[in-house]
């Protein structure tokens, strides 16, 4: 299991002190800080988060937490702890299962040595006891959230998400409930399935310097937030509010993310198909992908065999929103 990078134990002791007590192999201090923050152990009394997945720089972070209901014999000093797995691939189910297994071992034995043993076994052989990585399918992980569900959630407005994704704009997904955010956010890359890129996801970001800096170092991200203060920030293009089920275009992208008539009618037909319940997720994804590819090939055909330039697009004298869309899509697809 090459993708697996590191394992850490984060502990919250009786004095409410949170420390990353054990890691193998060692990780950077930034990462230590990030996993401690994202474990949400400090907030465990009010808002206990069992499992979360997130991304920092190019590393996926999977955190599984456990809170003791009464004093534990093996870990008497500790109120709650988290197992954090760092990996280079997106596969929440697989890492949740592994983290759960490790968490169980740690709370029974109270000794990281046993965890290390399991970790090494999984790392080198891909299995331990009942856990076997071959039983986890990557395709399933990618399509775990139903695209139909997202479309029905927002109605025809889902095309705004699609448009933003196609143009590689920055999208914020907000809800007070992290599980909800995580569920919806992993479905968004399905709208641009032709890219098959889940690295644009930043499923859980907190508002502090390190995390926001990391987020802004990339472009075209889709980030999940549970802190309502995110609305005050101005670096996003589209704001997806799960609490009110609305999609807003941010100040920055006013006049840029505007649906053309063609896009609107496409949205209506897709929404109607989803509403009718006759089309499966797969069919919808396929249809969208086909459409996406059509758009791209159209853009490619503009310049014929020559290299596409901005000037050639501008010479077409397209309506402003369409021109912006074409330019952004071309640059996003690397045609330009």
């Amino acid at each position: 299991m090459e993708a697996l990078q590191s394992i850490s134990i984060i502990e919250l002791d009786l004095q409410d002190d949170l420390i990353v007590s054990w890691t193998y192999p060692s990780i950077s201090e930034d990462l230590q800080q990030i996993i401690a923050q994202r474990s949400l152990l400090k907030e465990q009394n009010t808002n206990f988060q069992e499992f979360s997945f997130s991304k920092f720089q190019s590393t996926w972070i999977y955190i599984y937490s456990y809170a003791f209901k009464k004093e534990s014999k093996s870990l008497p000093e500790i109120k709650a702890f988290s197992i954090a797995l760092l990996a280079q691939e997106f596969h929440p189910e697989k890492y949740k299962a592994l983290a759960k297994l490790l968490s169980k071992t740690y709370r029974r034995k109270g000794n990281p040595l046993h965890i290390l043993e399991q970790y090494l076994s999984v790392f080198s052989q891909g299995k331990w006891d009942n856990f076997n990585i071959s039983s986890f399918d990557r395709a399933k992980a990618l399509s775990a959230t139903s695209i139909n569900e997202i479309i029905t959630l927002f109605g025809e407005d889902f095309m705004l998400i699609w448009c933003a994704l196609m143009m590689k704009k920055n999208i914020v997904v907000f809800s007070h409930n992290l599980d909800e955010v995580l569920k919806i956010i992993r479905g968004l890359p399905l709208f641009v399935w032709h890219r098959e890129n889940f690295d644009i996801l930043r499923p859980f970001v907190q508002i502090n310097n390190i995390q926001l800096q990391d987020l802004q170092s990339t472009l075209g991200w889709v980030a999940g937030f549970t802190d309502p203060d995110i609305r005050k920030q101005n670096f996003y293009d589209v704001f997806v509010d799960l609490t009110t089920k609305t999609i807003e275009v941010g100040e920055r992208a006013q006049g840029q993310i505007v649906l053309t008539e063609e896009q609107k009618s496409l949205g209506q037909t897709i929404f109607a198909a989803v509403e009718s319940g006759k089309k499966s997720d797969q069919a919808i994804i396929k249809a969208l992908t086909r459409k996406n590819k059509e758009f791209i090939s159209k853009i490619k055909s503009i310049s014929g065999e020559n290299q596409l330039t901005i000037e050639t697009i501008q010479k077409l004298n397209l309506p402003k929103p369409t021109e912006i869309f074409v330019l952004s899509l071309a640059s996003a697809e690397g045609i330009l």
Binding site: K168, T218, L219, Q256, S328, S331, G334
Partner: peptide, 13 residues
């Protein structure tokens, strides 16, 4: 602004 965005994107690529 758009061009700047694109520039950054190209650099990323």
């Amino acid at each position: 602004r758009n061009y700047l965005d694109m520039l950054i994107r190209f650099e990323k690529q």
